[in-house]
Nucleic acid binder design. Structure first.
Length: 834
RNA sequence: GCCCUCGUAGCCCAAUUGGCAGAGGCAGCCGACUUAAAAUCGGCUCAGUGCGGGUUCGAGUCCCGCCGAGGGCACCA
């Protein structure tokens, strides 16, 4: 049946009209300012990961911000004082590349993009507090990067060292370990090589234990996947340091092993080919060996990271004609150099136990070195495993010690404890912990980043720029050649580079590297608390009031890099006494990605969906609703599988409810249609829990049900003047305010109110949630044979009697004897017959 | 190779966490309204939960083994 209202232009849903009606109002009233210090409502800090200002928004932004906004708007409706800021992560390579390729000024290019993106964001109508906008490329922001760098430097947490670093031969800049993905540059997919350079690091490894252990406190509120990835990345292992004397060398060599129980099975030692230790040991060898060694090292350095990572790769190495002495049995172990040992893990040297380690076994077999079993390892059949020397498979499992002197017969665990104790007693070893995590390499040889606030002085060395001389501003790009050439473009800014030493006043030069942009994003969430502050990075009282972040929303692509660094900064700032918490993000939601036809969208694939076109065709609300309705937020959305047109249709349907309501605001719904009221209140009640559990797709589905029920009441039930209909329509408007702000506002306005975003979550009347009767399913041997309408409070005994007497049951039992009756009042009875 | 997650109608997804397999949507079909179409409204069809075992009165849900998809890690001693 059709509604009686006329479908004139003014009475038809048109998203363009509605967007034009409300966007200017919101731009004028700025309804999401959150700075009022007198506001006594409880606080919630909801944060979306801030974007790189790419100019326009794309589908990925649209999903992330739609989902984050559901959470922010929900807490506003629940009566919280919600902080929901946005800004720009605006340093980085795209601006620099635009400058190089198109001769544009990175600063102007970036600011233009920000202006354009802001316009798109305002139309997208997220509940952002536009008074708190920040952009990391502006001196009033990066000044505090420099300030924090200086604090870290004072504490020894920022330092410079000469070492082999990951080098991208295309971008001609260094990369952090985290920016090397599968041996390729994360940014341009070029195979990464190594280069020896003097670079700045943050000492993340000092915090390795805390970064690992504190993950436990996030177990309930972070995706377990992210926690697993962080654990894995930190990679803590426990074992022992063992001291090996070296023949002809004063200093012994330490090795780290997780298997001290196999110490008697060590048959050689391997040092990392690219380590200083290898070079020094080689010096003592014959000339021919020295030649062989140096050409080997050349070869290793030339190999790309991707080659090195291949596990198929045969083991290579050079015998250095030197010997180590096994501290437990005095055996002479030949020392080899190889690239399968990493210079920067443990001590850059290992004891090789080929019988029980696959890598060592591969090497031993390649070099014809002895293999000695020291653990009796059994296979699944209970028989000893085949000799690794012939099978080529190391006996990696558990077992009982053999060939190990008086340790024979001990279990692996017992032997580990015994060996560690013995080594410690003899002063030749101790228990030890190691980490996969390395210090964070933060210096970059690029222009568009935060200058490192250090002055190099011949007399005084590295001198931090004093706080009162910060920021060290980037010199103008004009006149500088920004093309990557392996050293920072800032080096060419002669006037900028040449300065005076803050310490002695003599001639000195500025550090010309800039900081990794992950520095910028490691603390921006604190800057949002007081973005205009000029005498510190953030206001300590505001931090007490708002932080840590109650809900962080962003892509799983940042599961390791950004989150780990932000956690490190938070702990460091905590230790400086600036904040009283140690984890920045109390809860984390990772949204999935938006794909098209089964794969990630890209121009080259030709499957790019333009957000602007979707918005023009279906409207902001329909696109946002589609993002929420498509499925669980953490799942990827395939745009080919969803229907923004369907969303638009639903929104029109919801909108017409408000249009058709024919009663005045403020009427008491108590006299209205009871059945509809029950649906309304049940929906509101359930949706609160559903939103808090991030079940947005279900919330939308439940809202659709409420709309359907309300439509039915209007057309063929209580009628448009029934107060329960008004109540239901108002509930729909509030529910939709989380997903579709324009439609919600327009409905709210038609219903005679203002500002739906702050309408408040309607009070749920608990008495309406109680069902008068429930359907009880009666099963016989697990199969449904009858249904009973019973009061919800029915007793077990009564229900059992009713069930046994039900006609369908009697028929199904056919006179069989009852063995057991399972009663789960009031919903189910299961009768088990003999 | 190791670790994690996920397999429910043609499609996207629900299922009170061990209790009627279907809430919502897309697509499809039928009908009402219309001169007709669009829009709107009403209705309908469609799976026994990837496969095989097990536990249980009862399994989409728990356990074991396969198959398939996705993700993470991968010489870290």
């Amino acid at each position: 049946m059709t509604s009686a209202s006329p479908e004139t232009d003014e009475h038809r849903y048109d998203f363009r009209v509605i967007e034009e009606r409300w966007l200017p109002v919101w731009q004028e009233t700025q309804p999401f300012r959150s700075g009022d210090a007198a506001d006594e409502r409880p606080t919630k800090y909801v944060l979306d990961m801030f974007p790189y200002p790419s100019g326009d928004l794309h589908m990925g932004h649209a999903e992330a911000y739609a989902l984050g906004d559901v959470i922010a708007r929900y807490w506003i409706q629940r009566g919280y004082n919600v902080l929901h800021p946005i800004g720009w992560d605006s340093f980085g390579l795209p601006a620099e590349n635009a400058a190089i390729q198109r001769g544009l000024d990175p600063r102007g290019w970036t600011e233009d993009n920000i202006a354009q993106q802001r316009t798109s964001m305002e139309r997208y109508a997220c509940s952002f507090d536009w008074d708190r906008v920040l952009a990391t490329h502006r001196p009033d922001y990066y000044r505090w990067n420099q300030w924090i760098f200086t604090r870290l430097h004072e504490r020894g947490l920022a330092y410079r060292k000469h070492s082999n670093v990951n080098w991208c031969p295309k971008d001609l800049t260094v990369l952090a370990n985290e920016q090397v993905v599968g041996g390729l540059c994360e940014r341009c997919d070029t195979p990464v090589t190594k280069k020896k350079l003097n670079q700045w690091y943050f000492k993340v490894t000092d915090y390795a234990d805390r970064l690992l252990d504190d993950l436990d406190t996030l177990a309930d509120t972070w995706p377990s996947k992210v926690i697993a990835m962080q654990r894995n990345w930190i990679g803590r292992s426990t074992g022992a340091d063992v001291v090996f004397a070296i023949e002809g060398r004063e200093e012994p060599v330490h090795v780290y092993t997780t298997r001290p129980d196999t110490l008697h099975g060590a048959t050689f030692m391997v040092v990392a080919a690219d380590s200083d230790l290898a070079a020094e040991l080689a010096e003592g060898a014959e000339a021919s060996v020295q030649d062989e060694f140096s050409s080997y090292v050349e070869q290793v350095k030339a190999a790309s990271e991707i080659d090195r990572l291949s596990t198929e790769r045969p083991k290579t190495g050079v015998f250095l004609q030197r010997y180590a002495v096994n501290p437990v049995n005095g055996e002479r172990l030949p020392i080899w150099a190889s690239d399968y040992v990493l210079a920067d893990y443990g001590h850059g040297a290992i004891m090789a136990v080929p019988a029980h380690d696959q890598r060592d076994l591969d090497f031993a077999r390649a070099m014809s070195l002895p293999v000695r079993l020291v653990l009796d390892v059994r296979g699944e059949d209970g028989e000893p495993v085949e000799d690794p020397a012939t099978s080529g498979v190391a006996a990696a499992g558990d077992g009982t010690l053999i060939n190990s002197g008086d340790l024979d017969g001990l279990s692996k665990a017992e032997a580990i404890a015994a060996v560690v104790e013995r080594l410690a007693g003899d002063g030749v070893g101790e228990a030890s912990t190691n980490y996969r995590l390395r210090d964070w390499l933060i210096s970059r040889q690029r222009y568009w980043g935060t200058p490192i606030p250090i002055v190099h002085c011949e007399a005084c060395g590295e001198v931090p720029v004093p706080d009162d001389q910060l920021p060290v501003e980037l010199p103008p790009a004009e006149g500088l050649d920004l093309k990557p050439k392996g050293t920072s473009p800032l080096g060419a800014a002669t006037e900028w580079v040449n300065t005076t030493c803050p310490s002695c006043g003599g001639a000195a030069t500025r550090d010309t590297d800039t900081m990794d942009t992950f520095v910028d994003s490691s603390w921006y969430f604190l800057r949002f608390l007081s973005p205009g502050k000029t005498d510190g990075p953030f206001d300590l009282d505001e931090a007490k009031r708002w932080a840590p972040i109650d809900q962080y929303v962003g892509g799983v692509t940042h599961a390791i890099l950004h989150l780990l660094y932000a956690r490190f900064f938070t702990k460091a700032l905590h230790d400086m006494g600036m904040i009283d918490f140690e984890e920045p993000f109390s809860a984390l939601l990772n949204q999935g990605m938006v794909q098209m036809d089964g794969s990630a969208m890209s121009k080259s694939r030709g499957n790019l969906v333009r957000l602007s076109e979707q918005l023009d065709e279906f409207g902001v609300d329909a696109v946002r609703l589609t993002m929420s309705f498509a499925g669980p937020p953490e799942d990827d959305i395939d745009w080919a599988d969803v229907s923004p047109a369907g969303s638009a249709k639903f929104l029109a349907r919801a909108w017409r409810l408000a249009r058709d309501v024919d009663s005045s605001p403020g009427v008491d719904p108590a006299t209205g249609d009871a059945a509809l009221r029950a649906v309304t209140h049940r929906t509101l009640h359930d949706c609160a829990d559903l939103v808090e559990g991030f079940r947005f797709n279900v919330v939308v589905a439940r809202t659709m049900e409420l709309v359907n029920a309300t439509r039915k009441a209007i057309d063929s039930g209580a009628g448009p003047a029934d107060p329960a209909v008004r109540e239901a329509a108002e509930a729909v408007a509030v529910l939709l305010s989380l997903f579709a702000p324009y439609v919600a506002e327009d409905m709210w306005s038609m219903l005679g109110h203002e500002n739906v975003a702050r309408a408040g979550w309607p009070a749920v009347d608990e008495s309406l949630l109680v069902e008068e009767t429930v359907t009880c399913v009666v099963q016989v041997k697990g199969k449904v044979r009858d249904r009973l309408e019973v009061p919800p409070g029915i007793g077990e005994d009564e229900l059992r009697e009713l069930a046994l007497a039900a006609p369908g049951v009697v028929r199904a039992m056919d006179g069989a004897a009852v063995r057991t009756v399972i009663v789960r009042a009031p919903r189910l009875v299961n009768i088990v017959t003999v």
